[in-house]
């Protein structure tokens, strides 16, 4: 006679379970991957706003991070590669009352979607863009990205990356973003607070989150997941208000974290109302 294993009467409920499509858990992210952490932080930040969940929507592109939209229990959109921002812009402009979160990866947002990113920032489109930066294309097996450090090994740079990576906070701030911050998955509390602050912020908010891709990036660059997190702990420095021009990712020199930009500028939808609808009652 076999005995059923002892189970608690009520299945344990994680405090974020009300925002997760629990029937789709476990998610596809590998052991040690940091996307789940960024996702948790984002959900915690949504909870922290106190705004009803049906006032939020999440849009993703394509890639590992972009699977986030599939796990969040909100109206959520998993779109095409690089196109999360213009899709989200359509949502925001058609219904400015919604809080629109773009959750995607560095390959999606900054290579194929780079043009959309700078234009949404220029317009100050009222979106909260959370970018999980794992320095590579994880979903396709670890190819060089627009964020891969110089000389790093990937499947398409077997001799090392000959190119230079983007400095994402610099790009965001130069393009006109209202809010720019960078954290790592180790800095969960700052990250959560920052996403929360960015959601409350009117305008284009951008949060870069450094996150390990142990399987497809770390493995080729002799970095175990815990090694990467040690780097985040030991080789980063929090400097709020730092010049984003100095925010290159160079762990030998130290990587700057914190809030780089927090300015007030009219958003795209409010400008549209004031410029194009001069006769309206709003």
């Amino acid at each position: 006679m076999t005995k059923n294993p002892q189970k608690p009467l009520k299945p344990a409920a994680h405090p974020l379970d009300d925002l997760i499509r629990t029937e789709r858990i476990p998610h596809i992210w590998c052991p040690g991957c940091g996307i789940g952490t960024v996702f948790s932080s984002t959900l915690k930040a949504i909870k922290g706003t106190g705004i009803p969940y049906d006032r939020f929507t999440m849009v993703s592109g394509i890639g590992c991070s972009a699977r986030g939209a599939g796990y969040v229990k909100l109206d959520s959109f998993h779109t095409t590669h690089g196109r999360a921002i213009p899709f989200a812009s359509g949502i925001k402009m058609a219904n400015p009352d919604l809080n629109v979160i773009v959750f995607s990866g560095d390959g999606d947002l900054f290579a194929i979607g780079g043009n959309h990113f700078i234009h949404a920032a220029r317009r100050n489109m009222d979106l909260t863009v959370v970018c999980v930066n794992n320095l590579t294309y994880g979903m396709t097996g670890g190819q060089v990205a627009a964020t891969t450090p110089n000389r790093a090994k990937t499947t398409t740079t077997p001799f090392g990356n000959p190119d230079a990576p983007f400095n994402l906070p610099l790009m965001a701030s130069a393009s006109g973003a209202s809010y720019v911050a960078r954290w790592t998955i180790l800095h969960t509390r700052d990250l959560t607070d920052s996403i929360n602050e960015a959601m409350a912020k009117k305008g284009f908010s951008f949060i870069e989150v450094l996150s390990p891709c142990p399987i497809n990036y770390g493995r080729r660059n002799k970095e175990k997941p815990l090694d990467t997190l040690k780097l985040y702990q030991e080789r980063t420095i929090i400097k709020n208000g730092a010049d984003p021009a100095r925010a290159d990712i160079d762990f030998d020199r130290g990587v700057i974290l914190g809030k780089f930009v927090d300015i007030d500028r009219q958003t795209c939808d409010s400008m549209y109302n004031s410029v194009c609808r001069p006769c309206s009652d709003d």
């Binding site: 994680h14 405090p15 974020l16 379970d17 997760i20 858990i25 476990p26 998610h27 992210w29 040690g32 991957c33 940091g34 996307i35 789940g36 952490t37 996702f39 948790s40 932080s41 915690k44 998955i185 180790l186 969960t188 509390r189 959560t192």
Partner: peptide, 13 residues
């Protein structure tokens, strides 16, 4: 709650 957020799997709180 540090474990709760850093856990990528919603497996601890």
């Amino acid at each position: 709650h540090y474990c709760e957020i850093i856990c990528p799997e919603f497996a601890i709180y």
